[in-house]
Design a protein around this nucleic acid. Structure first.
Length: 395
DNA sequence: AAACGCAACAACCGCAGTCTG
DNA sequence: ACAGACTGCGGTTGTTGCGTT
């Protein structure tokens, strides 16, 4: 289907906005609201197309925009969310109050991406560059290869999950009941989806579906290989694992160790922190999904996965102790920063601190779970109770 | 002081999804 | 159901300012 241009290009001004133009636009919107962007320029006396006005307003003139240097917390959030969401700037922006997607995108492209690259981390995949052997320790080539391989698998799982998410997201919103459910106050769409309500009417699920999908996909071992021996991702994280019965064609990936931040060589300012952040960014929770007993089998991916009542994923104590009380307190950044600060035992470990052997036998399982449980409870709170309109909770 | 290169940021472009008549 | 309008989004480009030579 052909599209007409958004506006008549002839005679319209392009390029940087002048203060006079800004003033006109501000004054008009202040008085009338923006209404239809197409008709706005004419009404406001601007020789601009509506799209240009909208962008100027959205990215620059809006009163609720914070400008200036990004804080460390904001940088952390961007990196973490970028690892999680990729170049979904609008989604990332919803968790950075008063920052626009355009600003975040620019900051990423001009600052963070370069810093990651200098740290030997591929800013696209958030994994060590393949030529970054120097970043690895002397533990041996096999470990290096394993780590890199696992990171690649992780990324593959992530992409796979996102692709399926996109394909199937529409299916989630087809029935009137679903639409009604989505209107429940203080519930993100994912949290208020009808199947969730049916399964757990009093509590939203504890899991961002993408995260769940990643874990489920990633968690399932392939071809034996010792099974799901390690859940340590990026840093020194190992997580309690779930057992999932696939009835469909969910992708199966091997599970091995992944690199930690222990092997850094580059030590420029901020880079160590960045590497650790990346390590954390791939720390995804594992959910005790309990598929064996769930009548809704894993037919084909995200859609089915979202059926699961995620209360099952956590211990009763975790449900009782941390979530509801804290679910909506504090901004995402505040809580995320606190989260990072409180997760030092895996965020950038000295010497790696591998919690698992290669055969899937782990020492200190319970302790580790107890230590990290709150971390993941918190992070799930963050994704389950996003700011209004947050795509973290589904479009 | 001028020229050049680079970084940072604003703005544009075009695609895709949604809305509406 | 369809077409056009509208909007959101991400990639890319253009401009500007600053530092270096």
């Amino acid at each position: 289907m052909g599209r007409t241009p958004c506006c008549e290009k002839v005679g319209l001004k392009k390029g940087p906005w002048t203060p006079e133009e800004d003033h006109k636009l501000l004054a008009y919107i202040d008085q009338h609201g923006h209404g239809s962007w197409r008709s706005l320029p004419t009404k406001a006396g601007l020789q601009r197309c509506g799209k240009s006005c909208r962008l100027r307003w959205t990215n620059y003139l809006r009163p609720d925009i914070k400008r200036g240097k990004f804080s460390l917390e904001e940088e952390q959030t961007i990196i973490q969310l970028h690892a999680l969401l990729g170049n979904r700037w609008s989604a990332i922006a919803t968790h950075l109050p008063k920052r626009t997607d355009n600003e975040i995108k620019n900051y990423w492209n001009t600052h963070l991406k370069k810093r990651l690259a200098k740290s030997g981390i591929d800013p696209v995949t958030h994994k060590p560059k393949t030529d970054a052997g120097i970043l690895m320790s002397n533990d041996g080539q096999s470990k290096k290869n394993t780590n890199l391989s696992h990171m690649a698998q992780w990324e593959s799982a992530r992409l796979e999950a996102e692709a399926r998410l996109v394909r199937q997201s529409k299916l989630r919103w087809t029935s009137p009941n679903e639409r009604l459910s989505s209107q429940a106050p203080n519930f993100s769409p994912v949290a208020s989806a009808p199947f969730i309500n049916a399964a757990a009417p009093s509590k939203p699920p504890r899991c961002l579906d993408v995260l769940k999908d990643w874990n489920i996909v990633w968690d399932k071992p392939i071809g034996g290989g010792g099974g799901r021996s390690m859940a340590r991702l990026g840093g020194n994280l190992e997580l309690p694992r779930s057992k999932i019965s696939f009835s469909g064609n969910a992708p199966r990936l091997p599970t091995t160790a992944i690199g930690s931040c222990e092997d850094e060589i580059v030590k420029e300012e901020g880079e160590e922190d960045l590497k650790c952040l990346i390590g954390n960014s791939t720390h995804l929770p594992d959910f005790n999904v309990g598929m064996e007993n769930n009548p809704m089998s894993f037919a084909s991916g995200v859609h089915e996965m979202t059926i699961l009542p995620m209360e099952d994923a956590w211990t009763p104590e975790s449900l009782e102790t941390d979530n509801d009380a804290n679910a909506n307190s504090g901004t995402f950044v505040e809580r995320y920063t606190e989260l990072l600060n409180n997760s030092g035992n895996w965020s950038c470990p000295e010497g790696g601190g591998d919690q698992s052997d290669g055969d899937g036998n782990r020492s200190g399982d319970v302790d580790f779970y107890e230590k990290n449980k709150n971390y993941w409870n918190d992070i799930l709170d963050l994704v389950n109770y996003p700011p209004a309109n947050s795509p973290m909770s589904y479009p």
